[in-house]
Design a protein around this nucleic acid. Structure first.
Length: 369
DNA sequence: TCTGGGGTCCTTGAGCCA
DNA sequence: TCTGTGGCTCAAGGACCC
């Protein structure tokens, strides 16, 4: 088996020249902040962080002026304010961001058919077969700017991975087209963590194996890495570093789970209050499931204690549920399985297993006669 | 004064069954 | 009847992404 049959160099891409696949990745620059700027132009040029108001709020995005002070996404808002005491804090406005996102996605769909939205502020676009894909993307960026005042960075390449890296490499207002060979040269000495899918934990494990750069990872035997990361993930990591990625741009991705969770401002020790909050979340989740037409067979809870230790419990039912009392009943049962001796920081509830569509599920549960 | 919320995917191990 | 094996589902945890 160890004949090196995983992603060997004989699969060398001759180079992307518009003859194979052509994928673009479009990423809106400092999206939440830019949307805030549309209604509050006086914020332009100022250090701004978009963050919630609670004691445990984190930064969702920051203006480039705030980033100069070391402020970054996912940083506790309190820490961000210590780094940048003059920053203006703006509370996030989800509905407004969704509206702005829809405006942009409609422009994309006006120009091209195969668009995969990946979060509110980014999308993959399959331009394969198009005669002048670069000119098309430039038109799209121009239309987005004139119609929404929002700026975007674009990366293009023979696959999603290269397109994504290219759009990140030249922000803000970047436009970078890379062949696979150009990507290999450009990112050879970059740390492995640059590659989407390689986070801090994986990067640390790679470093321990003596693999620090993208080029080093690309030169690693996939089977050797399989011993450390498993038969799927090991070779996958090497392929990422070789910029091999045949994942398609998927237009209609269906959700597989939905959840609601909350972090308490102060850790909870009162079990009755914890149960009350779990019921509230179950109600919220049920309303969302109803709105989206989802039902699922697996109900799960998540609990995070004051020391950040996190546990989950789940139960799979014979029939799918979506009603608040059904979800709450199972959630409370699952909570019974915990000894609640430590203060609780977070509680969450989740419904998964949507794989059978509501239409099918409805047919299965129709009463006979 | 640490570390949000809402998702997806992967791995591992247990249990069941043929 | 016992043992091995492989497939499948489920549960739990981990990692990652925006």
């Amino acid at each position: 088996v160890a004949d090196g049959s995983y992603g060997t160099e004989n699969t060398e891409n001759p180079g992307w020249e518009g003859v194979d696949r052509t994928i673009a990745h479009l990423d809106l620059d400092a999206f939440f902040f830019s949307v805030e700027l549309r209604r509050r132009p006086e914020l332009r040029g100022r250090p701004v962080i978009v963050a919630g108001s609670g004691p445990r709020a984190v930064v969702t995005t920051a203006s480039y002026e705030a980033r100069k002070h070391g402020v970054g996404s996912a940083m506790p808002a309190a820490k961000a304010l210590r780094l940048c005491p003059d920053a203006i804090v703006v509370p996030p406005d989800g509905p407004e961001y969704r509206r702005a996102s829809t405006e942009v996605m409609e422009i994309l769909h006006h120009h091209v058919e195969t668009v995969q939205q990946a979060g509110l502020d980014e999308a993959y676009i399959d331009l394969s077969g198009m005669a002048a894909p670069v000119a098309a993307m430039k038109r799209i960026v121009h239309d987005i700017e004139t119609e929404t005042t929002l700026h975007a960075s674009v990366g293009m390449g023979p696959n999603r991975l290269i397109a994504k890296l290219a759009s990140d490499a030249d922000k803000p207002r970047g436009f970078l087209v890379l062949t696979r060979t150009q990507a290999q040269i450009r990112f050879a000495e970059a740390e492995c963590g640059l590659i989407p899918g390689i986070g801090p934990k994986t990067q640390y494990r790679l470093t321990r194996l003596g693999i620090r750069t993208v080029a080093q990872l690309a030169a690693t035997d996939p089977l050797a890495l399989a011993e450390e990361f498993g038969l799927r993930t090991g070779p996958w990591l090497v392929n990422r570093a070789r910029f091999i990625d045949d994942s398609p741009v998927e237009v209609d991705r269906e959700a597989v789970s939905e959840s609601r969770e909350t972090t308490f401002d102060v850790d909870l020790t009162d079990t009755a209050e914890l149960r009350r909050r779990l019921d509230l979340l179950s109600g919220e989740l049920a309303a969302a499931l109803k709105a989206h037409g989802h039902r699922g067979r697996t109900v799960g809870i998540k609990i995070r204690f004051s020391d950040f230790e996190t546990h989950t419990r789940a139960k799979t039912l014979p029939t799918p549920v979506s009603a608040a009392n059904d979800i709450a009943t199972i959630a409370q049962e699952l909570l019974n399985g915990f000894t609640l001796e430590r203060p609780v920081r977070l509680i969450g509830v989740r419904v998964a297993g949507f794989n059978r569509s509501q239409h099918d599920a409805g047919q299965l549960t129709l009463p006979i006669g």
